[in-house]
Design a protein around this nucleic acid. Structure first.
Lengths: 239, 239
DNA sequence: AGTCAAAATTGATTTTTCTCAATGCCGCTC
DNA sequence: GAGCGGCATTGAGAAAAATCAATTTTGACT
């Protein structure tokens, strides 16, 4: 099957996400003077943005949709290293001229901006604001990554899943019903569990009316209860 | 019990680790002109360099010894988020003016350089080389952190422990007998296992003569076999 | 050498999670 | 609307890991 990825020239000035991007803080004039070719990419479920071990040419900003970063082991087993939502960056590990450390696979219809890494490198040397924005993203990624180590190391399956659902919901703050394009196998690959185990716990949560699902949409009915199962400190609990 | 930490002024010019530090690449003149107060810290088992949630004032370079970064959950459970060896950096999460995300606890007699974060911040704005060195460290930390997610998510206890022992050994390349100041509980907190389970597997490894232990020293007798248990791809296997 | 406390080991048992296998459900195409 | 394929669900049994409860070993200090 052919990839359905379409590419065209993007206009950063019109971008809805401009103030959340790594170019936030630049005024219109600076933005125009970047001379940077930014491509607008549209793709859908199953499309592959890049593959693990490929030399990295581009970095991406996810404007809309969802993407998983997957690492495949020799055993054939796959682990989801990160899940990305609107506003997240991917492919930046190539900034030091390295290969991609994961494969990037699209989960839901998505729009991304594609940036040439070499150009971005030059840009970040020239513009402190861009550089800081990128450093900040690195830092956030490390923090989240360490939080996941704690989840995986310290919590049991139920708690991990509850945490995961709440964190997913946090990315769609004003929505009652959330887009949820993950299969049980995806969730399992993210949480370090078997597909069946995830399915059982999800079914349990549904029977307890903590959550509700239909047609790729998820609704969190009792965030408090989930937070309790997740073993969260009060400060991080949802309303 | 009082902390046994001693602090004095450090002389960077004489430092053995100068070319591996974040000041590597600076010539002697540049180094002298930094005007940076660097403190030389000596401490030993059990000393606390900083605590989780404390506002961050200093960053550290570990010149010698070993340090664990610990995150404590409300349950009282502790997870070791990172283990640090000679050459590693710690406390840099404070560069964006945040609090420490872990507690830093000394495992073995250690020497560190302590840098004022505010000064370091200014320095990195002025010197591209320092800035790049720090970014590189962030990147390395993220990569290692993601590798641990994969370990925790995909491997069983035996394999995790085997990987861990081999990676520990990699930090002391030319030594047959390695310093190994971790308790079974420490290893368990790093690998997301119970103390007893770690103890059993370590005892197994010893019975199979894969490793040997005495007085805080560890010897890897059969790296190949461990690598096999670890499920490593050939490229990463030790000799 | 003797004492003590912390750490490691071991065993028995329970809980958690995985694996394998079967079945049910839903959305698609023809 | 029948048939198909990918997911989800469920059950049963096996394996992995945790927990609880003793001991034993070790190392530090006297």
């Amino acid at each position: 099957m052919n990839s359905e990825i379409t590419i065209k020239r993007s206009d950063c000035l019109q971008c809805r996400m401009r103030d959340q991007s790594i170019f936030a803080g630049l005024d219109t004039e600076e933005l125009c003077s970047l001379g940077m070719e930014v491509q607008d990419i549209h793709c859908r479920h199953g499309d592959v943005l890049y593959r693990m071990r490929e030399p990295a040419r581009y970095a991406y900003t996810l404007r809309n949709g969802a993407v998983k970063l997957v690492s495949s082991l020799e055993s054939g087993q796959e682990v989801i290293v990160r899940l990305l939502h609107h506003g997240d960056l991917l492919g930046f590990e190539g900034m030091q001229g390295e290969c991609h450390r994961h494969s990037a696979i699209v989960l839901a219809p998505s729009q991304l901006c594609r940036l040439d890494l070499a150009e971005l490198q030059r840009l970040s040397e020239r513009l402190p604001k861009v550089r800081e924005a990128i450093l900040q993203r690195w830092q956030d990624a490390l923090q989240k990554s360490e939080e996941r180590i704690i989840e995986l190391g310290a919590k049991r399956a139920e708690a991990r899943l509850a945490t995961f659902l709440l964190q997913w919901a946090q990315r769609y703050p004003q929505l009652r019903s959330l887009p949820f394009p993950l299969t049980r196998t995806d969730i399992a690959a993210f949480l370090g569990l078997s597909t069946e185990h995830v399915s059982r716990i999800m079914a349990d949560f549904k029977r307890q009316a903590l959550i509700q699902e239909q047609g790729g949409q998820l609704e969190i009915l009792k965030p408090q209860s989930l937070a309790h199962i997740a073993g969260m400190p009060d400060e991080h609990k949802p309303d």
